[in-house]
Design a protein around this nucleic acid. Structure first.
Lengths: 349, 349
DNA sequence: TTGAAAGCGCTAACAG
DNA sequence: CTGTTAGCGCTTTCAA
């Protein structure tokens, strides 16, 4: 038998460094107590500069990283944020946005040494939320695609679980959200187009109940109004996933077709491109087309799409910062944050 | 002062159930030792049916879920898989695929009560991998977009960290990968088209060094060959992100333009659609076009795209199963798994 | 400024 | 089949 207190043959392969070096080994190497090592790691006070140097040298030499589980158990912090990934087929039109958002979120969290844990749930299914909360898998939640009166937000608020939301929430819910200035974005696009000399506008947006679709359409009206242009009833076309192609076709085949089409998403714009070509109109020359989102999609456009860009990095950073504040300090009484958009100037308009 | 052993005022809000009910409370309620409760939870042997019933009743009554950190610390299992999300702008053409894959992965992991933790790293940057391994944040890794000789795979293999890979790996690396039958997929598409009466083929694929692009092109040749058709040198067009539009334009404006265009991705197909319209050709009528991937993108096509569908759910499930086996049993000596594709019949061809 | 003691909530190992 | 004992690796608390 070996001399150790317990003879543990470690048959199964676990996730471990080549040579395990606990905090004690670091302490021994640096000639301090393990407490001091802990203090240095969590940069708390309680040691002098020389000590810190020695400890850090030992940490580097041993390649030491504190064990996450042990740390979490003691400190009650998992250093993880749970992100509810919207269900695949529920809103495929949001996909171009989804990848960029996740990426931005991961990077924003990383800057605060946090990780993003992803999960899904069927619509109105709160079980997965329950589980994560009860098992304490994450310190807080990130929601996107939120309804104004979101059941997930309601649930988390009731449970006093820290969370943030990409998308505004009704006043009776915590105002821990960050959102895009949808109306302002479209309105500023109209401004931009008017400056280019455009006067003959139409708008194509989703006709769903999502507040952002309503706001973008509102932004179109606002933009026209403040430029002294009055929209005709027929200049606003509401589409949904299914009739995208045919609706836009009809619009462009009107006897008096518009010369400038502002749309509520890059995806709609992409379909408009196709229809334009189909009608023998070259986007950017015979017909101006603009989008909304500014995701990777515009790599596909020919000519490059002029669009309203959603500043994902700024949004993700704001979300993470707010979430960590909620985690640290409890409910933060503060209004939601509305982030302005930018115009991405392509040559489609 | 309170009567408890320690007077802990809990000022900061943590992620916790409304009423915390440890395993001891469940044990007391069920009238058993806490070990028995643990056994029931982890469905190990060591109790009779009646006991189990009582314990489960108590668990439900108290809404008890074992604390993840405590569990991980003791059992050395985090119940998490780390998924390396490819960097945003590195390969935007892969995005349509990315969302669906992540979703499939989350669901596959969930079926095994595992969670997916996402992270990114700059190209050839292994630091984030180091960190996750050393802190034991996950039990294993999932990689996608792998190169055949992937440095990430090499690193993890050297460290004896369990991992799986979406995409084949060179023989000197662990064969813990799952991949699509790229060649077979395109070849079967050619079969399908020949059955429809097509004879006049061209192929448009990425000209990059990715093996899957090479394989898809190879599949095209194979498909033609086994149908007794010989490809002309000019019938295969290699494109890259930038010249997509112009290359396809040139192809379709040849004096003897092909009547059937097989492509290496839905994205290429989408551009081909645009160009076809631009040339006054209706896809599905004047020109057959097919894709590869079968993601949500085909929601956009008019008419619906005929494409080679990658079975994401099957792939994700296979990946998770293999990864858990590696975690449980150590390195599994077993060849990589190649998953067959399916034809999604739209009306573009 | 540092060190020692205690214990986070659970599961592994072994004794009844 | 059940209960007891130990301790995962770290941070918190408190005493020196």
């Amino acid at each position: 038998m070996t001399g150790g207190p317990v003879d543990r043959r470690d048959g199964t392969r676990l996730l471990r460094s080549p040579r395990r070096s606990g905090i004690v080994e670091v302490a021994r190497m640096a000639g301090v107590s393990r407490q001091t090592v802990s203090n240095v790691i969590n940069d708390r006070a309680g040691y002098n500069e020389a000590t810190r140097k020695r400890v850090e040298k030992a940490i580097k030499a041993l390649g030491y990283r504190p064990d996450r589980a042990a740390r979490s158990l003691r400190s009650r912090r998992t250093m993880q944020l749970a992100y509810h990934v919207p269900l695949e087929d529920l809103d495929p039109l949001n996909h171009p946005f989804a990848v960029g958002f996740l990426q931005a979120l991961i990077l924003a969290a990383d800057a605060k040494r946090y990780h993003i844990l992803t999960f899904t749930a069927a619509p109105n299914e709160l079980g997965p939320f329950e589980d994560l909360v009860a098992m304490r898998v994450a310190d807080g939640f990130v929601l996107s695609n939120s309804a104004v009166d979101d059941p997930r937000a309601k649930f988390l608020a009731e449970r006093h679980v820290p969370f943030v939301c990409m998308g505004r929430l009704a006043p009776h819910l915590p105002q821990s959200w960050v959102d895009v200035d949808n109306a302002g974005g479209v309105a500023s696009m109209v401004d931009y187009l008017v400056k280019q000399g455009h006067t003959d506008f139409a708008y194509v947006g989703y006709g769903g109940a999502n507040y952002w679709d309503i706001e973008r359409e509102e932004g179109f009206r606002l933009g026209l109004h403040r430029n002294g242009i009055s929209p005709t009833a027929r200049s606003i076309v509401r589409v949904n996933g299914g009739d995208l192609h045919s609706s836009i076709s009809r619009l462009l085949q009107r006897p008096a077709r518009p010369r400038t089409v502002v749309t509520g998403s890059d995806l709609i714009a992409s379909v408009a491109f196709g229809v334009a070509y189909m009608c023998g109109l070259a986007p950017g020359r015979d017909l101006a087309i603009t989008g909304f989102d500014g995701t990777w999609l515009h790599n596909l456009f020919e000519p490059p799409l002029t669009t309203v860009r959603i500043p994902l990095a700024a949004i993700a950073t704001a979300l993470v910062v707010r979430c960590l504040e909620e985690i640290e300090d409890g409910p933060v009484e503060r209004p939601g944050l509305i982030v302005p958009t930018e115009i991405f100037a392509g040559s489609s308009a």
